[in-house]
Simulated scan of single mutants.
Amino acid sequence: MKRYGSVVRLRPEKEAEYRRLHAAAWPEVLDRLSRSNIHNFSIFLRDGLLFSYYEHEGEDHDADVAAIAADPRTQEWWALTDPCQQRWDTCPESQWAPMEEVFHHD
Protein backbone atom coordinates (compact mmCIF):
# COMPACT_ATOMS: atom_id res chain seq x y z
CA MET A 1 0.00 0.00 0.00
CA LYS A 2 1.21 3.47 -0.86
CA ARG A 3 -0.22 6.82 0.30
CA TYR A 4 -0.83 9.72 -2.11
CA GLY A 5 -1.54 13.36 -1.34
CA SER A 6 -2.28 16.21 -3.71
CA VAL A 7 -3.58 19.76 -3.64
CA VAL A 8 -5.59 22.13 -5.80
CA ARG A 9 -7.20 25.49 -5.16
CA LEU A 10 -10.97 25.77 -4.86
CA ARG A 11 -12.56 28.73 -6.61
CA PRO A 12 -14.37 30.63 -3.83
CA GLU A 13 -17.48 31.18 -5.93
CA LYS A 14 -17.71 27.40 -6.55
CA GLU A 15 -17.39 26.16 -2.96
CA ALA A 16 -21.11 25.52 -2.44
CA GLU A 17 -21.35 23.63 -5.73
CA TYR A 18 -18.27 21.55 -4.94
CA ARG A 19 -19.63 20.65 -1.51
CA ARG A 20 -23.03 19.77 -3.02
CA LEU A 21 -21.46 17.49 -5.63
CA HIS A 22 -19.36 15.63 -3.08
CA ALA A 23 -22.24 15.27 -0.64
CA ALA A 24 -23.83 13.05 -3.28
CA ALA A 25 -20.83 11.54 -5.07
CA TRP A 26 -21.88 9.28 -7.92
CA PRO A 27 -21.79 5.57 -7.05
CA GLU A 28 -20.27 4.70 -10.44
CA VAL A 29 -17.34 7.03 -9.79
CA LEU A 30 -16.79 5.60 -6.32
CA ASP A 31 -16.98 2.07 -7.72
CA ARG A 32 -14.36 2.92 -10.36
CA LEU A 33 -12.05 4.17 -7.59
CA SER A 34 -12.47 0.91 -5.70
CA ARG A 35 -11.89 -1.19 -8.82
CA SER A 36 -8.69 0.81 -9.36
CA ASN A 37 -7.44 -0.21 -5.91
CA ILE A 38 -7.94 3.26 -4.37
CA HIS A 39 -9.15 3.24 -0.79
CA ASN A 40 -9.46 5.64 2.15
CA PHE A 41 -9.95 8.53 -0.28
CA SER A 42 -10.61 11.83 1.47
CA ILE A 43 -10.71 15.47 0.40
CA PHE A 44 -10.14 18.20 2.99
CA LEU A 45 -10.76 21.94 2.61
CA ARG A 46 -9.00 24.81 4.37
CA ASP A 47 -8.94 28.47 3.30
CA GLY A 48 -9.58 27.70 -0.36
CA LEU A 49 -7.11 24.80 -0.51
CA LEU A 50 -8.33 21.29 -1.28
CA PHE A 51 -6.10 18.46 -0.04
CA SER A 52 -6.79 14.92 -1.23
CA TYR A 53 -5.46 11.76 0.32
CA TYR A 54 -5.83 8.16 -0.76
CA GLU A 55 -4.19 4.81 -0.42
CA HIS A 56 -3.40 2.65 -3.44
CA GLU A 57 -3.25 -1.08 -2.79
CA GLY A 58 -2.66 -2.36 -6.33
CA GLU A 59 0.39 -3.44 -8.27
CA ASP A 60 0.32 -0.75 -10.99
CA HIS A 61 -0.70 2.75 -9.89
CA ASP A 62 -0.23 4.27 -13.35
CA ALA A 63 -2.50 1.68 -14.99
CA ASP A 64 -5.12 2.04 -12.27
CA VAL A 65 -5.13 5.83 -12.57
CA ALA A 66 -5.35 5.53 -16.37
CA ALA A 67 -8.41 3.29 -15.99
CA ILE A 68 -10.05 5.98 -13.87
CA ALA A 69 -9.23 8.67 -16.43
CA ALA A 70 -10.63 6.52 -19.27
CA ASP A 71 -13.92 5.87 -17.49
CA PRO A 72 -16.77 7.82 -19.20
CA ARG A 73 -18.73 8.37 -15.99
CA THR A 74 -15.64 9.70 -14.21
CA GLN A 75 -15.03 12.02 -17.16
CA GLU A 76 -18.59 13.35 -16.72
CA TRP A 77 -17.90 13.86 -13.01
CA TRP A 78 -14.68 15.74 -13.73
CA ALA A 79 -16.55 17.94 -16.22
CA LEU A 80 -18.54 19.18 -13.20
CA THR A 81 -15.79 19.29 -10.57
CA ASP A 82 -12.81 20.58 -12.59
CA PRO A 83 -14.34 24.04 -13.21
CA CYS A 84 -14.61 24.42 -9.42
CA GLN A 85 -10.85 24.10 -9.12
CA GLN A 86 -7.87 26.24 -10.08
CA ARG A 87 -4.63 24.48 -11.00
CA TRP A 88 -1.31 25.36 -9.42
CA ASP A 89 0.88 27.42 -11.73
CA THR A 90 3.77 25.07 -10.95
CA CYS A 91 1.82 21.99 -12.08
CA PRO A 92 0.18 22.71 -15.44
CA GLU A 93 0.15 19.04 -16.48
CA SER A 94 -2.27 17.90 -13.77
CA GLN A 95 -5.47 19.23 -12.21
CA TRP A 96 -4.28 18.14 -8.76
CA ALA A 97 -0.65 18.85 -7.88
CA PRO A 98 1.04 15.80 -6.32
CA MET A 99 2.71 16.20 -2.95
CA GLU A 100 5.80 14.54 -1.54
CA GLU A 101 5.37 12.65 1.70
CA VAL A 102 8.03 13.88 4.11
CA PHE A 103 6.83 12.20 7.29
CA HIS A 104 4.63 9.27 8.32
CA HIS A 105 4.04 7.54 11.63
CA ASP A 106 1.94 4.41 12.10
Rank of each mutant, 00 (worst) to 15 (best):
M1S: 14
M1L: 10
K2C: 02
R3W: 03
R3Y: 04
Y4N: 04
Y4M: 08
G5I: 11
G5E: 06
V7I: 15
L10H: 07
R11K: 15
P12E: 13
E13V: 11
E13N: 11
E13K: 08
E13Y: 09
E15K: 15
A16L: 11
A16P: 00
A16K: 15
R19V: 06
R19A: 04
R19C: 01
R20F: 04
R20H: 05
L21Y: 11
L21D: 03
A23M: 11
A23Y: 03
A24H: 14
A24C: 10
A24I: 05
A24D: 12
W26Q: 07
E28N: 05
D31Y: 02
R32P: 08
R32Q: 14
R32W: 02
L33G: 07
L33D: 01
S34M: 03
S34G: 05
R35C: 04
S36E: 01
S36C: 10
S36V: 02
S36G: 06
I38D: 01
H39D: 09
H39C: 11
H39P: 00
N40V: 00
N40Q: 13
F41H: 15
S42H: 12
I43W: 07
I43N: 00
I43E: 01
I43F: 03
F44I: 00
L45C: 00
L45T: 00
L45V: 06
L45A: 04
D47V: 01
G48F: 08
L49D: 07
L50V: 06
F51C: 07
E55C: 09
E55W: 03
E57F: 08
E57G: 10
E57Q: 11
G58H: 09
E59K: 13
E59R: 14
E59F: 06
D60H: 14
D60P: 09
H61R: 13
H61D: 07
D62C: 01
D62R: 11
A63M: 06
V65F: 11
A66L: 08
A67P: 07
I68V: 15
A69D: 05
A70P: 02
A70S: 07
A70F: 01
D71V: 11
D71L: 10
P72A: 09
T74N: 12
T74W: 04
T74K: 03
Q75T: 10
Q75L: 13
Q75I: 12
W78M: 06
A79W: 04
L80T: 04
L80W: 06
T81Q: 13
D82R: 13
D82C: 06
D82L: 10
P83H: 06
C84N: 11
C84V: 13
Q85H: 15
Q85L: 15
Q86R: 12
Q86T: 13
R87A: 14
R87D: 07
D89F: 01
D89K: 03
T90P: 01
T90W: 06
T90I: 11
C91E: 14
C91Q: 12
P92L: 02
P92K: 01
E93N: 12
E93S: 12
S94R: 12
Q95V: 15
Q95T: 15
Q95I: 15
W96S: 05
P98A: 10
M99K: 00
E100R: 14
E101Q: 14
E101K: 12
E101F: 00
V102Q: 06
V102I: 15
V102N: 05
F103S: 11
H105P: 00
H105F: 13
D106S: 14
D106P: 14
